[in-house]
Design a protein around this nucleic acid. Structure first.
Length: 376
DNA sequence: AAAGTGTTTCCTGGTT
DNA sequence: CAACCAGGAAACACTT
């Protein structure tokens, strides 16, 4: 039980860190601070990573050959940063190439453009081409993070979970605030969210912290400037889910959030992040096929048939929300999206059983043999 | 730029 | 009664 909690914490911590790195989009080049050892994990777990600044690592999980020019640049700057290399000696004018071009470079060419770093880049490129070919999702990152963080969490989890257990709105608010104030707050949600698992069900609906009324998908938390979010939380701007339903008929459908203008303004440039295969059903699948992580969140009812069940529906919804940078996600909404899968036969209906779904013929990657083969 | 896709948000009504 | 389930509608973020 405690273990379950910790795992969930780590898991959600993973997501929050991973996706909060996106928040760093608008931070001015933070000097590379304190990353320790493993680069991959660091990219995630240390959101301060100056890195490409826009996303966690746009190039990750994709084969270098398919990288766009932007991804190539991201990767290069990542490598520069990682190696503490003096970027001034790089001829960036010659970096204007896409992945295919990059991959076709001979080591000497790379050396020409990047100097001593060239060799490093060349071998990294090879590693990546090999590893990414079987890198369908972020699971291995979760695992790595788990390994790294589980230690640390042993210490902190006690405190963290006690926060959640109290479920004090103040604590929640604090956690939220601190996250607002510092998007890099590690484990922001990790500490607060999963424990809501205990409180989640009871506080459903209203339970959404909603400090920043979020805004799904794109570099969002960032969309709201601090003042706005203050407005939102205190006196609720559109405040759909806050408590005054009876007040004035809401319009049907999804309410507008921020104007595109302000969003673009804050996003600055082209932080176009490709959803890249991370759909809800894949997210669900990934939790399920990772027994070390899904404990307490979901379970297989019938592995062969692809029947599974939500154990902590709200907690899963929260995680999904984190992934989408939308902390007002609820199981109610998540389940609506799940129901859309019936028509597309990504899921099959399992009636009469609450919280139970079944993968359909248009889903993949969950069968045991598929999982096994993707693992090595 | 318009369409299409995949949600997200809301809502009404029914079931467990 | 709360928590779910079913779907319709419409808005939205992104991609094509």
């Amino acid at each position: 039980m405690a273990a379950t909690c910790e795992i969930s914490n780590v898991f959600s911590n993973y997501f929050s860190t991973m996706y909060s790195s996106e928040d760093s989009a608008q931070t001015p080049v933070t000097p590379a601070a304190t990353f320790g050892a493993d680069d991959l994990v660091l990219t995630l777990s240390n959101p301060q990573m100056p890195l490409e600044g826009t996303e966690k690592a746009s190039w990750l999980g994709e084969q270098p050959q398919f990288w766009s020019k932007a991804q190539v640049l991201d990767w290069i700057s990542y490598q520069v940063e990682k190696n503490k290399y003096d970027a001034s000696s790089i001829d960036f004018s010659r970096c204007d190439m896409d992945g295919a071009a990059l991959c076709s470079c001979a080591p000497e060419e790379l050396r020409l453009v990047f100097g001593p770093l060239g060799d490093q880049l060349y071998s990294q490129l090879w590693d990546l081409s090999e590893s990414t070919s079987s890198f369908p999702d972020e699971l291995s990152w979760i695992i790595e993070l788990l390994e790294k963080d589980s230690m640390a969490f042993q210490d902190t989890v006690g405190d963290a979970s006690s926060f959640g257990e109290q479920g004090s709105p103040f604590v929640q608010e604090m956690l939220d605030d601190s996250r607002q104030a510092s998007p890099y707050y590690p484990g922001s949600y990790g500490a607060g969210a999963p424990s809501p698992g205990s409180s989640d069900v009871s506080t459903t609906g209203t339970g959404t912290p909603q400090s920043s009324h979020s805004s799904d998908s794109g570099g969002s938390d960032v969309d709201l400037d601090p003042t706005d979010s203050k407005l939102f939380s205190s006196d609720g701007f559109p405040d759909y889910k806050k408590g005054d339903p009876k007040h004035g008929k809401r319009k049907r459908g999804r309410p507008r959030k921020l104007s595109k203008e302000s969003r673009e303004c804050l996003e600055g440039k082209k932080s176009k992040h490709a959803p890249r295969g991370t759909h809800l059903w894949e997210f669900i699948r990934d939790i399920l096929i990772n027994p070390e992580l899904n404990e307490g969140l979901m379970k297989w009812e019938n592995r062969q048939e692809g029947v599974f069940k939500f154990l902590r529906s709200e907690a899963v919804a929260q995680l999904w929300g984190q992934k989408k940078k939308n902390n007002s996600m609820t199981y109610e909404k998540l389940s609506r999206a799940m129901r859309y899968y019936y028509k597309r036969e990504i899921l099959e209906r399992v009636d009469g059983r609450r919280l139970v779904y079944k993968f359909g013929k248009n889903s993949s990657g969950w069968k045991e043999d598929e999982v096994a083969s993707s693992r090595d």
